[in-house]
Nucleic acid binder design. Structure first.
Lengths: 342, 342
DNA sequence: CTGAAAGCGCTAACAG
DNA sequence: CTGTTAGCGCTTTCAG
């Protein structure tokens, strides 16, 4: 593909018998240029179809108005919405987004971090992959002086800006709600415990049981039931126990809850009468299943906006007394038919 | 935020008493450097924690290994999946993605184009906004010598690379299927006709009617029924006609189909017995509604991969006999319960 | 195989 | 207010 020669500020300067720096000043709306010449420059720039080369500007200023985002998958509702929220704010500020997917792989996450740091992005926003273990690559971001914001799935031990959901209290609220609805043997579908969010949700589950003096029954806690299929398998196993649960809290996702619902339907077990089901994330389908599924909304778009706002507020804040702020959002329990016995 | 001084190739060169150009050669794995010095350079680069500055490299080479993507909304299933598909391929090739949302606004789309062209991205991939009228900004991309790939929603008249879905044949197949199931008064929910995709889907609908010698009934064609709410409103109106339709083809989206289904349920009209419903896009929820919704799958991830592959194949192809290739994918009719009378 | 030197396009001192 | 100059970090000729 042929690249036609692009118009530079030198071309404009030459045409007007001016100095490139004046042109630069005019284009950047600097005060140190007379309004008449500024007008003239802007007009001819327009005429000559001049476009800034922001790569050159970035190299010179060391600031490229670009924010890197790393998420496991961009085509998952929660992450897509968070990114949409981030973009809403960054767009207003004239910043661009470079988006990378880690595909839930730590190795790939490291590569994403490298490409972003090589590009000297102004900030990196990340939600870590499922097999996250070693925060070395995140530390290297900080070492290079690039602001880092972790959200949702984070390395707790790392002192960075964070935007979190209060998973524990949300999970607790959900399970308390189920208990109040009369469920007594509530099973938990749990996610990989190396991720903070799943640890917290489990903690909320346990706290709710404790609050109501219900026993913790190990056989009702199923590991790694993350997808619809795994949720279905887990549910089948649970419902075939000699003492099956009367409710399932799919703390991993609404997909697992959907798997549970399908198995219950298939086994002719009535939801919510014989079995209560609660998911997590408020995926759009939870509203239209039969019965509709109780779930927890994470305000994902708001979360994205909050993340971006956090960056910009830090940017203009006083450098000297800088602390890594942590913002925690409150998820919302959405009670639907799948847990309403009364 | 403090930016610690970054290690450059000069630092490495100085330490080793070499010339920066040798360091550059070693890092870029050039042939013109002895294996011993190459080893040495790579080792010390590692030790000194050197990271390339890809901004500087971009400025020098005029090639930044970055692809810009403009879509109406990143948090819509179809677009999120297309982007995921694009990313899968570009990642392998060491390219990055800069993602912009037009928010269905032509004005904002123009701005997105500007930021991307200013950044000298290697390629721009776009699906135009709903209020698209004037392809001027797309022409300016071409004028600047940046390869342009349009997908799905495209400006037909513009000679660029394109990756399309065969909307017309897919819509025709869907309507033919409904006719074969015995539906005779099939309504159409249509989208804004300034977008090629909705024109094509309408054409497919009309072609199917023609094929089976069914009359075109204007009162059964409803404009701009794009969302769930608009789909519901349209359906309510249709079902209250003196001669209501016996089927609805929601060519705009599955959301409109869902709205139709909800209205039918609410009015105690049996689907598929009294009313057939077919959507478009194969959103995940169409599988779990009651009854499940017949729809058209657009192979969105494949589409994304195809787009990226098209770019890379053009990249290495002979420049002289370059033609703007158009790839058309075949959507797939997914027949579910909402149209199965037999 | 290695060194020297120029320059991508822009911005930001510093002079005038 | 405008011009001069240097340089961001890298790649890439051209010499040697």
């Amino acid at each position: 593909m042929k690249q036609p020669k692009r118009v530079t500020i030198y071309d404009i300067a030459k045409k007007l018998n001016l100095n490139p720096s004046s042109v630069s000043r005019a284009l950047n709306n600097s005060a140190n240029v007379s309004t008449t010449t500024k007008q003239l420059i802007l007009k001819t720039a327009e005429e000559m179809n001049y476009k800034v080369n922001s790569v050159a500007a970035s190299l010179r200023t060391g600031n490229n108005q670009t924010i890197g985002v790393i998420v496991p998958h961009i085509n998952q509702n929660f992450f897509a919405n968070v990114i949409a929220g981030i973009e809403e704010v960054t767009y207003e500020m004239g910043y661009n987004l470079v988006i990378c997917q880690s595909h839930e792989s730590a190795a790939r996450e490291v590569q994403c971090v490298n490409t972003l740091t090589n590009q000297h992005v102004s900030c990196i926003i990340i939600s870590v992959s499922a097999d996250f273990e070693d925060p070395g690559h995140l530390e290297s971001i900080r070492k290079q002086g690039i602001p880092l914001i972790q959200f949702d799935r984070v390395a707790d031990e790392l002192d960075t800006m964070k935007v979190l959901n209060d998973n524990e209290s949300a999970a607790m609220e959900a399970v308390c709600h189920m208990i109040k609805e009369g469920y007594k043997r509530i099973a938990l579908l749990e996610g990989p415990q190396n991720l903070n969010i799943f640890r917290q949700r489990k903690a909320g589950y346990l706290a709710a049981l404790k609050k109501y003096d219900l026993p913790i029954i190990p056989e009702l806690i199923v590991e790694n039931a993350w997808t619809k299929e795994l949720g279905a398998t887990a549910t089948r196993k649970l419902l075939n126990l000699s003492e099956p649960p009367d409710a399932i809290f799919a703390s991993t996702s609404d997909f697992a809850a959907l798997g549970a619902l399908e198995v219950a339907t298939e086994m002719n077990i009535q939801v919510p009468k014989q079995l209560g089901i609660c998911g997590y994330s408020n995926e759009s389908f939870t509203e239209i299943t039969n019965p509709s599924i109780t779930t927890i909304d994470q305000h994902s778009i708001l979360m994205g906006k909050t993340i971006a706002q956090l960056y910009f507020s830090e940017l203009k804040s006083d450098v000297s007394n800088h602390k890594n702020q942590i913002v925690t959002l409150k998820p919302e329990l959405i009670i639907r038919k799948s847990t309403k016995r009364h």
